[in-house]
Amino acid sequence: MRRLEDLQNEFERAVFLAAYHSPRQRRRRHWAVLGLVAKHGLRGLAFSWPVYVLALAAVYGDTSHALAYLAVLLLAMGVSGMILIRGVRDDYRVRVQGRLREKTGHPGV
């Protein structure tokens, strides 16, 4: 599948862009973003779930240090969020932007 940046000819670029901006392609890109967020979010969660134990402890368990637990939790969520955003942005740039999406819709192919 050709990318926009590979096309040199003005005519080819115009044809490509016409398809790229169509509602169908835009919809597919939105689904792709959702897929990427899910992928990176789940991946991140798989690696960092123990930190949410701190949240549980603040709620269900010993509440005397709840503030400390929440602080660490927020820090971890901040970092995870940053990693999520960067990961999604990176993948979007490499796999979605400037390409026409196939029917399968998965951003990994």
Binding site: P50, A57, V72, L84, D90
Partner: peptide
């Protein structure tokens, strides 16, 4: 429980620092 949670907390911070040490932490 507090000690365990504390250990978990600081290990989380350490892991975060170690990940941020990477040129591209999101990978």
């Amino acid at each position: 429980a507090t000690l365990l949670l504390g250990l978990l907390g600081i290990e989380t911070v350490a892991l975060v620092l170690s990940t941020l040490h990477l040129g591209r932490p999101h990978r």
